[in-house]
Design a binder for these strands. Structure first.
Lengths: 224, 224
DNA sequence: TCGGAGTCAAGTGTTCAACAAGTCTCATAT
DNA sequence: ATATGAGACTTGTTGAACACTTGACTCCGA
C-alpha cells in the first residue's frame, strides 16, 4: 500500500487561495472594496474564516486593510513597480550566475514554462501568458536553492502580476518578448552565463519600461 | 494645533507583537507548545484574537502550526541557518556597495546601534547585544532603499535572532566581535567600499560558524 | 447657497458559546 | 509486550451578539 498524500488544508487557507487566484487573474481589480459579510455568504464560510483569509492576503501584499474601513485589492504605485524591479535585478542576475546544470529538474520545468508561455501568446491568452512569464522567472530564482528566497520572490511577482494582467493586449503586444525568453533559456543551458546575465538585465529593463508606460497612461487617463 | 499621531492598532496585532517580542527575547524557547485557551486567558483576549495573532507569527516563520496539533515556537535547523546566511551574503554585500553617504540618516542610526551593542556587550546583556547586532545589519540593508526588502530582511533576522539568543554567553564571548562592527562602520563611512565588503563577508562567515558550532553542540547534547 | 453639528445606518473589530473533527493518553485485552 | 479502543482534550469553524468607527445624510443657522 502506498503512502497517500492527504489533502488537509484549513478552510481559511482555501479561501485565501481562491481570493489570491481571483486577484492574480485580474478578476478582482485593484482598488475593489471587499466586504466581509457578502464574501462569507458567497463562499459559504463564516465571517471569522474570511477574516483569517484576508489577514493572510494582506500580509502577502495583495490586499490592503485599513482599520474600520475594510479591505481593498492592493494597488501598485509606480514606486512599488520600481522597487520590485530593483529587487528582480538584485536577485535574478546572481541567480543565473549561480546556475549549475547538473541533473537539474529546474531546466525541464523551465522548458515547460517556456512552451506554456509561447502557446498562451499565440492564443492571445494574456492572463495565461503573464502567469507563465513570471513562472519562468521564478524558476530562475530556484537556482539559488533557497526556500525562503523563493517564497519571498513568489510574493513579489504576485504583486507584479496583479498589475500586469491589467495591461491591454491590443496596445501592448507581448509577442516580441517570446524570442527573448527563449534566448535567455538557450544561453543558460549553453553555459554562456555572462551573456545570459546581460540579456536578462536588458529584458528586465524593457519589461519595466513597458509596464511603467502603461501605468502612466492609465494614471493620466484617470486624472483626465 | 499639531496633528497628533494616533496609535490605533488592532488587538490581534498587539498580541502578535507581544508574542513576537517574547520569542525574540528568548522568553519562549523554540519547541515550546502554545495552547490557545491558556494564552487567551493570560492575555485577556478571546480565542479568535489569539488565533489571528498566531496566524501572523506563523507567516513570519516564528511559529509553526500543524493542524489540530497546535502551534509551537519554530526551531531553526542547521539548513535554515545556512539558508539565512546565504541570503545575508547575497543582500548585505551589495548593500554596502550601494551605500551612498549623502546626508544619510542611516549613519546616525548605525552609530546608535553600534553604541547600544557595545554597551550591551560590556554589561554582559546577551539578549540586548544580539538585538543591536542584528539591528546594525538591518540598517546596512537600508542602503538598498527598498521597503519590501527591508521587511523581508527583518523577518529573516528575526528567525536568526530566535536561534542566537539561546547561545550561552559564557562559552561564547561575543566581545571579540565588537571591533569588527566598529571597523565595518569606519570603513563604510570612510568610503572604502571594497574593504568593507570583504570584511563584512568575513564577519558573516565567522558569525555563521560560531552559531553553527553552538547548535551542533546543542544537538549532540540532546541526542546523548 | 453654503458650511457645520447632530443623527443614523452600515461595516468592521472583538468576544462568547457551541459543536465538529482531529489527536493523544491510557487502560484493557490478546 | 503489542494492538485496540474509549474518552478526554485541543484545535477548527460556525453563528450571533455587541461596541466602535466611518461616511453619508439631514437639518439648521448664517
Amino acid at each position: 500500500m502506498e503512502l497517500a498524500e492527504i489533502h488537509r488544508v484549513s478552510v481559511a487557507d482555501q479561501v485565501a487561495s481562491i481570493l489570491r487566484q481571483r486577484i492574480l487573474d485580474g478578476v478582482l481589480i485593484p482598488g475593489t472594496a471587499l466586504q466581509e459579510v457578502p464574501m462569507a455568504a458567497s463562499l459559504g464560510v463564516s465571517r471569522n474564516t474570511i477574516r483569517e483569509a484576508t489577514r493572510i492576503l494582506s500580509l502577502e501584499g495583495l490586499l490592503k486593510r485599513s482599520a474600520h474601513r475594510g479591505v481593498t485589492v492592493a494597488q501598485l504605485s509606480l514606486e512599488d513597480v520600481g522597487e520590485i524591479y530593483r529587487l528582480r535585478h538584485l536577485l535574478e542576475i546572481p541567480a543565473v550566475r549561480a546556475a549549475r546544470m547538473e541533473g537539474s529538474d529546474v531546466l525541464a520545468e523551465m522548458r515547460n514554462a517556456l512552451e506554456g508561455y509561447e502557446e498562451a501568446v499565440e492564443g492571445l491568452d494574456w492572463v495565461r501568458a503573464v502567469r507563465f512569464d513570471l513562472y519562468f522567472h521564478t524558476l530562475l530564482i530556484r537556482f539559488h536553492r533557497n526556500r525562503r528566497l523563493e517564497s519571498f520572490y513568489q510574493k513579489l511577482l504576485g504583486e507584479l502580476r496583479m498589475g500586469m494582467v491589467l495591461v491591454d493586449l491590443r496596445h501592448d503586444n507581448p509577442g516580441g518578448l517570446v524570442p527573448v525568453h527563449r534566448r535567455i533559456f538557450e544561453l543558460l543551458t549553453g553555459g554562456k552565463t555572462e551573456e545570459c546575465a546581460s540579456l536578462l538585465a536588458q529584458h528586465l529593463r524593457d519589461s519595466e519600461t513597458r509596464l511603467t508606460a502603461v501605468m502612466d497612461q492609465r494614471i493620466a487617463r484617470v486624472a483626465k
